[in-house]
Design a protein around this nucleic acid. Structure first.
Length: 424
RNA sequence: GGAGAAAUGGCCGAGUGGUUGAAGGCGCACGCUUGGAAAGCGUGUAUACUAUGUGAAAUGGUAUCGGGGGUUCGAAUCCCUUUUUCUCCGCCA
C-alpha cells in the first residue's frame, strides 16, 4: 500500500496518476486524510493522559517508598477518571486505525509514468518481439492432443484423482517438466540469483504482506483448520522472508530464485482459454525476486526483463514483450512487462511471464526497510519479481512448435536435462 | 496428540510489581591514544507514532521485553489466552 505520508504530500498527484489505472481515488483519499487527522487528535489526547498517569504513578511509587502511604493513596484517586478517559480513547483509536488501514489498502499502487493508458489487454503496448513462428506440418495438433497421443500428460487422470486443472505428468512428460525446472533454476543462478526452497503454504500475515490478502482471498486455496493458504506463486513466501526486516544499503541488490508448485483457484475464469495446459489449478513455476534500492529498481527491472528474454530465446520460442496498460496492470504493480510465447498450433499468444516493479508498495505492507550507510532513518526498499518461467504454457508452446511428423523434438538446451532428444 | 520448561535489544545474558527502553558482557560506530595496528580509555549504539523545531539536527511525549487480552495508581515481572522453541511420552516419512 501507499504510505500515508506520500498520500498527504502528493494528494493531487496520487489522484491524477491513478486515473491511468482507471481508478478514481479522490473520495477515498479525502477520507484517508480526514481519518488521519482524527487519528492524530485521538492519539495526542491519549498520549497526554497516559503521560499524566505515568507521572502520577511515579510519584506514588516515591511516596510509598518514603512511607507516606496516606498521600499515595490519595494520589491514586486522581487517576480513576483519567483511566476511564484513556479506555474510551484507546477503543476509539483502535477503531480509527482499522478504518484507516481498510481505506489505505483500497488504493492501488501508482503506475509508473511509462504505463500506457488503456482499458484492457488490447491496449497493452508491444515493445519487442523475437524468434520466428514455425511453419507446422499438415497434421499438426494442439498440445492437448499431443499429450494424449504420446501419453505424457494425463488430464483425465488428474480429474479422477483431484479435479479439473490438476494434470498428471507421466514418463517423458514428467521428465520434461523436471528438465525445465532445473534449466530455469540453473540459468537464474548463473544470473546471480540464489536459490530458495520455500514453504508451499503460508500464514495470513504473509498473504497480506505481498498483497494477496485481503482482496484476492478467493483466488487462494485455504486450509481452514490451520488457517493457512496454499501459495499462488513462490513470490509470496520468498518476498515474505524479508517481512519486518531492516537491511543496510550495501545489502542491495538481494536476488532470489525459487521453484515451487503454484496453486490457484481461478474462480470465475472457467470457459475461457482453459483447455489443456493453458490454465491450471496447480502448476510449476520458477520465480525470481529482487530487492533493490529505490534509485536502482528500474535498472533492476530492465535486467530482469532482459534475463527472462534470454531464457525464452534459449528455448527457441517466438515471443513478444508487452508493457501492460493501466487497465491490465495489477493492483500492486507500478510497471509490468508481460512475456508471451506463440503457440503455433493454437495460433495464439500465451502469457508465460510477468515481470513487475512494485516500488515500495509491497515493502510498506511488509515493513521491509533499509538504512543508508551511517543514517539513522529507515526507508522503504523496492521489491520486484517475475516468472522465470511459468512451465505449463512453455510446455504447451514447446510441444506445439517443436512437433514434427516424427514426434516432438526437444530444444537443444534441454536435451542434456531431459536425457532424450525426441518424444515419439 | 499428552506432560513439563522456556521466549528479554544485532548476539549472549541479568532482572518476580515502582523513575527499567531495560544491568553486565560481546559485537558494531566514532573519538582519544599509536609511526601504523592491537590493547587500553571515552562516547554512542532499537523501532514506530507524535509535538516543538531545523539547512541538517536536536529535544519532549506515547507505545513496544514472542503475539493478544486482563489485574493494578504502576507490569519485562502477577493472571488468562495464543504462537514458537526445548525435554520426555505417543505416532510417523
Amino acid at each position: 500500500m501507499l504510505t500515508l505520508k506520500f498520500i498527504q504530500e502528493n494528494r493531487a498527484e496520487v489522484i491524477e496518476k491513478l486515473k491511468v489505472k482507471n481508478f478514481d481515488a479522490s473520495a477515498i483519499v479525502d477520507q484517508i486524510l480526514q481519518k488521519d487527522e482524527e487519528r492524530k487528535q485521538t492519539q495526542q489526547n491519549q498520549d497526554n493522559i497516559l503521560s499524566q498517569i505515568n507521572s502520577i504513578s511515579k510519584e506514588i511509587g516515591i511516596l510509598f517508598k518514603s512511607g507516606k502511604a496516606d498521600e499515595a493513596n490519595a494520589a491514586k484517586e486522581q487517576t480513576t477518571h483519567l483511566k476511564e478517559e484513556v479506555k474510551e480513547l484507546s477503543q476509539n483509536l483502535a477503531l480509527i486505525e482499522t478504518d484507516l488501514q481498510k481505506l489505505l489498502v483500497q488504493i492501488p499502487n501508482i503506475p509508473h509514468a511509462s504505463v500506457p493508458p488503456g482499458k484492457g489487454e488490447e491496449d497493452n503496448v508491444e515493445i519487442k518481439s523475437g524468434g520466428t513462428i514455425p511453419e507446422l506440418h499438415e497434421n499438426a495438433k494442439p498440445h492437448w492432443e499431443l499429450t494424449k497421443d504420446f501419453d505424457i500428460i494425463d488430464f483425465e487422470l488428474g480429474v479422477k484423482i483431484t479435479g479439473a486443472g490438476f494434470p498428471v505428468y507421466k514418463g517423458k512428460g514428467a521428465r520434461l517438466q523436471r528438465a525445465l525446472i532445473n534449466f530455469f533454476l540453473d540459468e537464474n543462478i548463473k544470473a546471480g540469483f540464489s536459490e530458495i526452497m520455500p514453504p508451499l503454504v503460508v500464514n495470513e500475515a504473509s498473504g497480506f504482506g505481498t498483497g494477496q490478502l485481503p482482496d484476492k482471498e478467493g483466488q487462494m486455496y485455504h486450509v481452514g483448520v490451520d488457517n493457512l493458504y496454499l501459495i499462488p506463486t513462490a513470490e509470496v513466501p520468498v518476498t515474505n522472508i524479508y517481512r519486518d526486516v531492516i537491511l543496510q544499503a550495501k545489502d542491495f541488490p538481494v536476488k532470489n530464485t525459487a521453484y515451487s508448485a503454484c496453486f490457484r483457484r481461478e474462480a470465475g475464469s472457467y470457459g475461457k482459454d482453459v483447455r489443456g495446459l493453458n490454465r491450471l489449478h496447480q502448476f510449476d513455476k520458477v520465480e525470481i525476486v529482487a530487492l533493490e534500492h529505490p534509485e536502482k529498481s528500474y535498472a533492476m527491472l530492465d535486467k530482469m526483463v532482459a534475463h527472462v528474454e534470454t531464457l525464452i530465446q534459449k528455448l527457441g520460442l517466438p515471443y513478444r514483450i508487452l508493457r501492460l496498460c493501466g487497465g491490465d496492470i495489477s493492483f500492486t504493480s507500478a510497471l509490468t512487462y508481460d512475456f508471451e510465447v506463440f503457440s503455433a498450433a493454437q495460433d495464439k499468444w500465451l502469457e508465460v511471464s510477468s515481470v513487475s516493479n512494485f516500488e515500495s508498495y509491497q515493502a510498506n505492507r511488509l515493513k521491509l526497510r533499509f538504512k543508508e550507510d551511517g543514517q539513522k532513518k529507515t526507508q522503504l526498499a523496492h521489491t520486484l519479481n517475475g516468472s522465470a518461467l511459468a512451465l505449463p504454457r512453455i510446455v504447451a508452446a514447446i510441444l506445439e512448435n517443436y512437433q514434427t511428423p516424427d514426434g516432438i523434438k526437444i530444444p537443444d538446451v534441454l536435451v542434456d536435462y531431459c536425457g532424450f532428444d525426441y518424444i515419439k
